[in-house]
Amino acid sequence: MTPQTSADAPGPGGAPSPFTDLDRPPLAAAALRRALLGGDGLWSELDVVARTGSTNTDLVDRVRRGAAREGTVLIAEEQTAGRGRLDRYWNAPPRSGLFLSFVLRPGPGVPQARWSWLPLLTGVATATALARIAGADTRLKWPNDLLAEVDGEERKIGGILAERTGGAEQDAVVVGVGINVSLRAAELPVPTAGSLALAGAHTTDRDPLVRAVLRSVERWYADWRAAGGDAGACGLQEVYAAGCATLGRAVRAELPGGRELVGEAVAVDGDGHLVLDTGGGVQRSVGAGDIVHLRPGR
């Protein structure tokens, strides 16, 4: 579907105005552009749309048509078909979260085998930004979930989806970030979900949150690319491990093809894969799959 721009948001007589929920004001697109674009920075273009199916789907299509350069950012006030890993779909009330995607092109200076770090890099950058701006103690579940404590329980408050695209060359990665910001308990899609508000965040103002997340991604991406994608050399691997709630826990890895692997998550290796100790001195590396935490971390 065609995204509807903020300027086209319906008012009286049409769909609800963006101002009907004063706890969830619309994003200030012009102010975000002034703050984030220009100079020698990463971000080259930023659009805020009132409603779309999926920001990732929209940007993947634009990349394939040659209509999106590196640093293009698309933010939606509402997503009706937001996509996660394993083709899972979800949605949330308008202006209740951060729903954004951006285009990265690491280039020939970074071996493509190291591009698997991009969703983990985005997780580190996002968690760092949320801690600084919202005071949220956010942890990372491998490979791409954001967790926070709500009512004494670990809940998922966000996720990250990275997709290789760009035609035959596959020279671009579209990274999507979805964060539940102001969702109330009655609005949660499943009991295991949470939000920044429910986790006791100091602020749910999305404008500074967007700025902080994108600036943090820009810094980490610059360091990672300067290191040729070496996550160890730029400090990314160490920081990810320090903030990873999966390490030190017994987990079940649900792998492609219906296979399962159970063991203790002991490390994240240089390729960003999760290393499991399956017993008897055997370690297995998991590059893709769904991870289920089987017991609390140590």
Rank of each mutant, 00 (worst) to 15 (best):
A162L: 09
G272P: 07
A172R: 09
V210D: 06
T80K: 14
A233Q: 07
P3C: 09
G176P: 11
R284T: 12
E260N: 11
A129R: 03
A226P: 02
E260Y: 06
A129I: 01
Q170E: 15
G41A: 11
A50R: 11
G41N: 10
P119M: 13
Q79G: 00
R95I: 13
D171A: 14
S44G: 14
L255F: 02
G158F: 04
A29Y: 02
A186H: 15
R298K: 10
N56A: 09
D207T: 05
E70V: 08
E45C: 12
C234E: 13
Q79A: 04
A186W: 05
R33M: 08
L98I: 15
E163P: 02
A250C: 11
P25W: 08
P296N: 12
W142D: 00
G287T: 09
G279H: 04
A253W: 00
W115E: 12
G158S: 04
C234I: 02
A92W: 03
N91G: 15
P16L: 00
T138M: 14
A30C: 10
V124P: 03
T52V: 12
A241L: 09
L100R: 00
R65L: 15
P94V: 01
E260T: 15
L104N: 05
R295W: 04
A197K: 10
L214Q: 03
A148H: 06
L236C: 00
G281I: 13
A233D: 01
V266Y: 09
V73K: 00
L198H: 00
R62L: 11
R65D: 08
L22A: 12
R85M: 05
L209A: 03
H273F: 14
G158N: 06
G167W: 02
G66E: 01
R206M: 00
Q112R: 14
G66F: 05
A231L: 10
P3S: 08
S54T: 01
L104T: 14
E149M: 12
D205T: 07
E260H: 14
R69G: 13
A250E: 15
P296E: 12
P25R: 09
V286L: 06
D223K: 13
L59G: 02
S116G: 15
T52P: 11
D151N: 12
A227Y: 06
P10N: 04
A193G: 10
V213M: 01
W224Y: 13
T204A: 12
I291N: 05
T246H: 01
P12Q: 05
P94C: 02
A129S: 03
I133D: 11
A131I: 06
V190N: 10
R69A: 15
L46W: 10
A212R: 10
R298P: 15
V181A: 01
V60L: 08
W142A: 02
E149Y: 08
Q237D: 10
G248Y: 01
T246C: 08
G228Q: 03
P26K: 04
A68Y: 11
Q112G: 13
L118S: 01
I75Q: 04
Q283F: 05
R83K: 14
A35Y: 07
G84Q: 03
Q170W: 02
A185M: 01
E264V: 15
A253V: 07
G123S: 06
R206V: 10
D269V: 05
G270R: 11
K141A: 01
